[in-house]
Nucleic acid binder design. Sequence first.
DNA 1: GCCAACGTTGGC
DNA 2: GCCAACGTTGGC
Length: 139
Amino acid sequence: MTYWLFKSEPSTWSWQNQAEKGAEGEEWDGVRNYQARNFMREMKLGDLGFFYHSQSEKAVVGIVEVCAEVHPDSKADDPRWECVDIRAVRQFTQPVTLDQIKADPRLGEMVLVKNSRLSVQPVLPDEWAAICEMGQTQP
DNA sequence: GCCAACGTTGGC
DNA sequence: GCCAACGTTGGC
């Protein structure tokens, strides 16, 4: 099992939107970056990920699960862009903010901190556990 | 709203 | 294959 982080601007696609899709989930479309796409190619059914709100909120707000492995992005004209489907699993009791993450020495090496622009990224098991704990959410 | 960081594109 | 120009993202 690998852990991931999916970043979204809440004004474009929020946790609320994601949760409304229910168990069926939704395509994580719109990624136009090779690094991010390559991570999606590595994802397996059942992998878990954090759902992060960028921009004004800047916080991890929930946990999602990969419910379809990589396939062409239906919204792209160019066949090189692919994506997975994800579904909402549970919302954090307490969102974990970027400030909190930056302040925690265990999380200083997170891609979220080191490369803030990458929209799909891997999360280490220790980082996963720490953030779940901070969010008072079961891993 | 600005700007730094980064990725992509295209001319040479 | 290099690099300048440009576009985009996201934190502040």
